[in-house]
């Protein structure tokens, strides 16, 4: 079943048309990756879905409701949780407080405690550092925290914007493993990545963006073996 359907999305930054008619879908249980070069419109797509940007044209349907143009907090209420680019944790809050903020819209104390336990099980490192300030964590730990904060909201769709950015290869691998684990628990994931090889390797399906339009789409494996993708995004000749 399709849970997110984006149709013909057009978004502008001032005069510049960043998205020129993007259409994509996320189905239940899927990991969907958006790859592409800098400025292709990957992050803009996520930001438009999450309500940080307002589209000029197009539809965004989430579980049957039109959500295009809703403010960010309303989109969060619907269950679409974005883990923003650059992690954007709360630097002077402790790890635990950061996670509590993730559950801002929830009132079920027992459920919140349960979710936190789940985050700590998935990221044991965060449990060790639960009283440490977010800003003092390493880049990888901050990405774990940002992802964990997203999980605290019990997402119906988790959107990750460049989770591998600025992280060591070992850490990136670990983050991607966690994304797969989360997905295995039933959370659909929309992933934006510059690291095309890893993003396609874990994706059920993928889209390749070029200057605001969708150039290619297919299964993760299919795109990985596509000649054009191999040349342009995987650095093979």
């Amino acid at each position: 079943m399709t849970i997110l359907r984006v149709e013909n999305l057009h978004t502008f930054y001032g005069q510049i048309e960043a998205l020129k008619g993007i259409s994509l879908e996320v189905n239940e249980g899927e990991i969907v990756s958006l790859i592409g070069a800098n400025g292709a419109g990957k992050s803009t797509t996520l930001k438009t879905i999450s309500g940080q940007l307002v589209p000029v044209e197009g539809r965004i349907d989430f579980m049957g409701d039109g959500i295009a143009g809703l403010p960010a907090h309303k989109v969060t209420e619907k269950g679409i949780i974005q883990v923003p680019e650059g992690r954007r944790i709360f630097p002077r809050m402790t790890v635990e407080e950061n996670l509590e903020m993730g559950a801002f819209l929830r009132k079920d104390k027992a459920g919140i405690a349960e979710s936190m336990e789940r985050v700590f099980t998935l990221f044991p490192r965060l449990r060790e550092r639960r009283m440490q300030k977010g800003g003092t964590l390493s880049g990888g730990e901050q990405q774990m925290l940002a992802t964990g904060r997203g999980m605290m909201a019990t997402p119906k769709l988790l959107m990750l914007d460049e989770p591998s950015m600025g992280l060591a290869p070992v850490v990136v691998e670990m983050i991607f493993e966690t994304i797969q684990k989360l997905n295995a628990e039933g959370v659909p994931i929309l992933l934006v990545e510059q690291n095309a090889a890893m993003a396609l390797a874990i994706a059920h399906r993928g889209y390749v963006l070029e200057t605001g339009t969708i150039a290619l789409e297919g299964t993760g494996r299919g795109l990985l073996t596509n000649e054009r993708v191999r040349k342009t995004y995987l650095g093979e000749s």
């Binding site: 999450s50 940080q52 969060t76 923003p84 954007r88 709360f90 801002f104």
Partner: peptide, 17 residues
């Protein structure tokens, strides 16, 4: 507090800015 620390992150956890 969340808004003071990071407006984008605050909106992403569901705070109405």
């Amino acid at each position: 507090v969340a808004m003071r620390e990071d407006m984008v992150a605050a909106a992403s956890v569901g705070i109405n800015i």
